[in-house]
Design a binder for these strands. Structure first.
Lengths: 207, 207, 207, 207
DNA sequence: CATGAATGAGAGTTCATTCAT
DNA sequence: GATGAATGAACTCTCATTCAT
């Protein structure tokens, strides 16, 4: 087992450097030279390991997504009850490694590329579908019908994404416990509400 | 009647072209040549009217913000009751001109620049503070204490931003009535909930 | 005689503005817009009166040369004796209007263009020949043979040009009386020296 | 033996190419593309080695000055007697490598930038002071008082600069022996003259 | 007569990529 | 495996020139 494994090490190094560089300079000003400098390597190395800058950026987003997925699977492993599983989903989205400023900044940067980078869009779609389907499935187990499950899932998803965006704009990290509490509180309220009653309530409130 | 008013017209033209270009090509690939082409003008015109590309981009974000502000003021004009005023704030954020795909894409693009573009960050902070203070003020009038007002305002703000982000990632526009309904439903639930009860509920739900 | 004479006025205005602009910004950074601004006119006017920027620059150099020539003719008018006429030549080169900082700076700028601007080179050659032939003619009248006249004329010419250059590099104007004194002193020494004696002297000095 | 010494080689190459380009096209029309072409390299290389065009131009002037200085030091090395040392100064200013047409043209071009380029002005000031102080020091050793030393030094300096300028305007190189002879002859005459006598002579000449 | 809005060619500069070592 | 020198395309910005008014 001589040199086996240099490649994965270098790739991880460069991906970590990419996240740092995006955080430090912004997506546009993240050049190959800067990534390489942050990794303590030479600029040529990136073509060597990733073929191109775009490939490295896609690999970086894939890495962020797979971190998220790993967290999710870990937390779902021991959770059986629907509410527990939803909590696991929420907790995964605000897991420790997801809540640092560099990672959040990188996420926002990638999101902004999604509308114009097919590969990043594909990755984003996969994550998005997974989150949605996870939530819907558990919400249905909690007794919500399809339409309501969809609606509640969408609200929770938007809320999660919104908390991330706001953190990115604020420049700091996410206060994970607070974020989890906000999402879970909203979930409980949405579950407690009878949709019919809500309509009335809204009606009266608007009166 | 010499050439009165050519400048404001050109500036508006170019700002509109910038939004279109960001939507069509993405922020990074929005070049001066492309903006000018979309405006049907020559590339030199941008330096002529804005001094630099960055200045045009800042002006574009300012334009988006002032559209938002105008909508807000229009809607707040006739609204007196706190709930009405909150509805006005929400409605402004999902006003017609804010919900088209190009505008949403542009917003996301600007957000992604915020961590590294001081001028854009400044503009974002102004909008953010205004939204937060508007909501808090009305929530307090609805009987919420400071801490709870802050919390509810934050949840609503995150939800609004999250809905925008998701729309941007989805590539389409926003279904404004649906978005408004989602936010207002969440608001009503948050208002109906007694914080103490919520804690209990959460406790029991987590049990 | 209604509008007759607007053209010469404008041309003079623009030439004066050109000299000021070269002094203020340097030759390279002397743009049409800046010249026009200094003249209090619009940028389009230059093409109108001169056809092109190059034409204006050539006209400006011609103007400097004709000022010089006018000075020379004025001073030569009443001078009959050879030494008097040489003094007139020297004095003309350090005439008041030639010794201001803007004019000196402009001269240096034009000189630097001479090697690559045929029209400016042509003008320069004319001035140069005139100066040389003036000096040689009077030096011959003072009894110098052709070779010695050429040599002395060249030394005087170089000295005059050198004083101008140094003034330009120093940034101020020329101290005209001092400059005249230096040139005339050198002339008198050159006239008093017997070339043969000079050779000896040099020989002994080098011994 | 990796790539030791590539940088100094490239820098020298590019500086030489810059002088050639200034001679061939003139200062204003000396573009990065043309310099690179003369060096047989690509345009990007200049930013790589010098950061900017201005930096390259300053480095080129520094190079011309250091050539001059090297010549001066070489010639002063074995010269002890004041007159010998002055001859060394003069000879250095008309050294072989200073007298080629490209170098002379470049000098004139730089001089024309001096009034508006602070860094070039600084370099010029250093050279100018050194020349002046060298001359004054030796002139004092030859028995001239301060005021007369200053005057004589200034005349010699102007003469040297003037010879350079005339060569640049003429387009050819300098006839170095002739130039040296002209300057030294003038020096000897200035030394031989008794200032008091000069005043009389001038008085009588002007009478 | 005079303006100044508009053009577009060309400048300096950046940077992903290549490749000899 | 790794380097970093070199390339050259693409970008932003400047500015002489044109021309409708």
């Amino acid at each position: 087992m001589p040199k086996v494994g240099v490649q994965p090490i270098r790739r991880r190094q460069l991906i970590a450097a990419t996240i740092e560089a995006i955080h430090a300079y912004g997506y546009d000003d993240t050049t190959i030279a800067r990534i390489a400098a942050k990794a303590g390597l030479s600029s040529g190395i990136i073509s060597h390991y990733f073929g191109s800058k775009d490939e490295l950026l896609a690999a970086t987003m894939r890495s962020l997504l797979s971190d998220l997925r790993r967290q999710l699977l870990d937390r779902l492993a021991g959770a059986e009850a629907p509410m527990r599983r939803i909590e696991a989903v929420v907790a995964a989205n605000f897991g420790e490694s997801q809540c640092t400023a560099p990672v959040i900044t990188a996420w926002l940067a990638f999101w902004a590329q999604v509308p114009h980078a097919p590969e990043l869009a594909r990755l984003q779609r996969i994550y998005s579908r997974r989150l949605r389907s996870n939530l819907r499935h558990e919400l249905r187990r909690l007794g919500l019908d399809d339409a309501r499950g969809e609606e509640v899932g969408e609200i929770l998803g938007s809320l999660i994404d919104g908390i991330w965006v706001r953190a990115a704009l604020g420049g700091g990290g996410i206060d994970a416990p607070r974020a989890r509490r906000q999402v879970m509180e909203t979930l409980h309220l949405l579950l407690a509400a009878r949709p019919a009653a809500l309509q009335e309530e809204r009606g009266s409130a608007s009166r």
